[in-house]
Write a protein that binds this DNA or RNA. Structure first.
Lengths: 245, 245
DNA sequence: TCAAAAGTGTTACTAATACACCCATGT
DNA sequence: ACATGGGTGTATTAGTAACACTTTTGA
């Protein structure tokens, strides 16, 4: 066995980084009956990407993911789950990476660490659309919501990451309290059903859905809602917080 | 933003490696009614570990995992699944790592790359116990099967990795053809049930288990088995290979 | 008053569970 | 012949799915 010393450090904004590792969170939000995710658009390019980041030497992976999420959404205490690692050899292409950097006025040498191979750790996050304030990073001029059904083409393998995130979300839908994280404090049963239908991408039977949700014992029914909507006013519901029994 | 060049390379046995990334496979086998995993014991230490390895610059992650598995078991075409990434800041302690290297006559400088932070990608593998030939690596003097129920203490966070692997296996048991990978070519229904019971760590109803398995339409019944065993001879079964319908 | 949406009740069907029963075989 | 393990039948229950029915409300 032979080996070498490792004096090389990779530094960004004063933070030493784990080399060759990025975190790419798929941030789900729900608004007006549509499931959306946050995407960055890099300056002047028509290049769209997940709002990723790197891991500080001093952070656990989960902490890094939370920091990145807080930077893009302004929210702490987010529901967050690691779901897969993407590490194919050629998942990133250097040309795209170079274009991104050029667009912000940075030239990269051929052996710059940003052009080398990267492993990306996929996280998905569920957030309350109404609470988030999307914020671009230094390389981007926009950080905005895109309807999952009509995403623009994404750089690298980010489309595959999104698909896998959605798959995982669908698989775990029954176990996880998805609604708790994607909906505002109070909501109607129809809201909740639309959320489930959107995630599962198939219609559900209204009456049975209602019974099933109520049978879980995690919903509390409040007074009626009378908002502008025509026809019978539905109840409002709230999740029974596990801390307040 | 500031940054640095990255001339540093990490080389092992002539292969350039991804820095700071290891692969730690949990290799499951089933023998005599017991679920077992492969562990390495480092020379002269009483230190036990998962039979891990590193990723070559030229490999996809999955390819690296397969290579590592082939090195330890002699088997290619293994059922393999990535299940989680372990990246806590202090998951490894330098002292243990140093002990391991010392035991093989290697001294490590304080800034050696092996002593720096590592992210470990967890894979679990299912293999036919009877087909594998466990083989130690250069640092170890044994690579042997240990009953899951009585593992020795493991280094670093390897116990947590094993637990998470088992959790994932239990969760996916219904979807995955676990038996196909953990049992020999032919087996009895009792064998299959013992396997499931061991993985799930709870007894299953014999009669219903049989029906459920048969209803999946993935088992083919062969002639009887008359081996030494007393009492009624059970049928032998084989998985219907998906390629031969 | 009536159309649309919300909520409840009823029935049918399917899957999971428990257990009773019969069969085959080596001692 | 009989104890033991292997295989099948059947009743009970729980969970889904489908759909009819009632209630409420704004236009």
């Amino acid at each position: 066995m032979n080996s070498e010393r490792s004096p090389a450090r990779f530094v960004l904004d004063g933070h030493e980084l784990l080399p060759g590792i990025s975190i790419d969170p798929v941030i789900f939000g729900f608004h007006e009956g549509q499931l959306k995710i946050l995407l960055l658009e890099f300056r002047d390019t028509r290049l769209f990407a997940l709002p990723g980041g790197f891991v500080h030497e001093t952070e656990n992976l989960d902490e890094a993911a939370r920091r990145i999420l807080a930077d893009r959404t302004g929210l702490r205490d987010i529901y967050l789950e690691q779901f897969y690692v993407f590490g194919d050899r050629d998942r990133r292409d250097a040309e795209t990476q170079r274009k991104i950097m050029v667009s912000t006025g940075t030239q990269l040498d051929d052996d710059h660490w940003l052009l080398r191979r990267f492993i990306s750790i996929g996280y998905y996050a569920l957030i309350d659309f109404t609470q988030a304030t999307p914020t671009p990073d230094a390389l981007s001029d926009s950080c905005t919501w895109y309807d999952l059904a009509e995403l623009p083409p994404l750089i690298f393998d980010h489309s595959a990451i999104v698909r896998k995130a959605l798959d995982t979300l669908q698989k775990n839908l029954d176990d996880k309290l998805v609604g708790l994280n994607l909906l505002p404090e109070t909501f109607t049963m129809a809201d909740l059903q639309r959320l489930y239908e959107t995630i599962l991408a198939r219609p559900l039977q209204r009456t049975n859905f209602q019974r099933k949700m109520l049978s879980l014992g995690i919903l509390e029914r409040l007074e009626k809602k009378m908002s502008g909507g025509a026809h019978k006013a539905p109840y409002l519901y709230r999740f029974i917080s596990p801390t307040t029994p």
